[in-house]
């Protein structure tokens, strides 16, 4: 009951957000009709061609009607034709999304274990040498922008040691050597961030009464951490991991552009550089959809780990 209510409310909120985003995206990119014609037909089209094209594609209708038609087509999977790639956008996106999914999945395989373990180890003994080391490394990695870490890692592994290729075009199928650098660059920031959050959460939990009681009772340090501290210490980091998705999506654009990797990020980037407005619209909507979905998952994970928060309260926005 509570779960259903929670999910219904969350989905309602997500749909409302998506609708608002769709209005904003539509208004931003399609309200200026003359501009749309120039972007679709190119700079060198004549005024007559533009007028004819606008009339043929229903651009002379009122804006509300156009929006509703656009939304209807969008929901039913008709995302229009890309003016840059000259293909159906709906057939273009799934492959690119999957390619970026591989990149993000690889990054999570680094971020989650390394970030959590480093954070827990550092937080077990605040002020220890290990703690200081983890804090130092994580503040370093969270300070370097994605494009700069791409440059630094490439300088070491591509220019200097010559171990790895400097581009990840995947021209001859999937290549493990080509994906290592993009994954590492993408993981660098979030790993440091997750380690910091986990450390802070661990320090808090290690100072609570029940951990002190366990210690007084003579439980071994391993038992204290594994049985008593870990579950509570992981509540915040797990939600943080889910909320890293929007960040990963931003990082994906930079990393893919740097390594010429054919994924969702380069798709949006090429669309933006070439004023391919229908493709920009589709990419923007899909990225917001990804973010909204991960937010719901993050809320579910939070309440699953923390039974003190009831789903009904979470659904109503009470804390």
């Amino acid at each position: 009951m509570a779960v259903t209510l929670f999910i219904i409310r969350k989905f309602g909120g997500a749909i409302a957000t998506m609708l608002t985003v769709s209005v904003l995206v539509f208004l931003a990119l399609e309200v200026n009709v003359a501009d749309v014609a120039v972007k679709v037909l190119g700079q060198f089209s004549t005024a007559d061609q533009r007028t004819a094209w606008l009339a043929a594609n229903g651009y002379n209708d009122p804006v509300v009607l156009r929006y509703l038609r656009w939304l209807g087509a969008f929901v039913t999977g008709d995302w229009g034709t890309s003016t840059y790639y000259r293909t159906e956008i709906a057939s273009l996106i799934p492959g690119r999304l999957a390619a970026s999914g591989i990149l993000a999945g690889g990054a999570l395989l680094v971020i989650v274990p390394v970030g959590l373990i480093a954070g827990v180890l550092a937080g077990m003994k605040p002020g220890s040498l290990l703690d200081r080391l983890v804090s130092l490394v994580s503040i370093l990695t969270t300070s370097i922008p994605d494009f700069a870490s791409a440059v630094f890692l490439s300088a070491v592994f591509v220019f200097w040691l010559k171990w790895l290729p400097g581009a990840s075009t995947m021209l001859s199928g999937f290549s493990l050597a080509e994906i290592i650098l993009p994954v590492l660059v993408l993981a660098l920031y979030s790993t440091g961030y997750l380690a910091r959050v986990t450390r802070a959460s661990m320090v808090d939990v290690m100072g609570t009464h029940y951990v002190r009681t366990a210690r007084l009772k003579g439980a071994s340090p391993a038992r204290i951490v594994l049985r008593h501290a870990l579950r509570n210490a992981l509540i915040t980091p797990v939600t943080v991991i889910m909320l890293q998705f929007p960040w990963l999506l931003s990082g994906v654009i930079v990393v893919e552009v740097f390594y010429a990797y054919k994924g969702f990020g380069t798709l949006l980037y090429d669309a933006a550089l070439n004023s391919d407005i229908y493709l920009v619209e589709a990419c923007a909507m899909i990225s917001v959809l990804v973010v909204v979905t991960t937010q719901i998952l993050s809320d579910l994970a939070y309440s699953w780990l923390n039974p003190r928060v009831s789903l009904v309260d979470a659904a109503m926005g009470r804390s």
Binding site: T17, A28, P246, L249, V288
Partner: peptide, 21 residues
């Protein structure tokens, strides 16, 4: 509500869309 809507964009996607427009 509007703050939440803006925050549901990945930042770089938001900037790229704004710059395109």
């Amino acid at each position: 509500y509007f703050a939440n809507v803006v925050l549901s964009f990945p930042v770089l996607v938001l900037y790229i869309v704004i710059i395109v427009v």
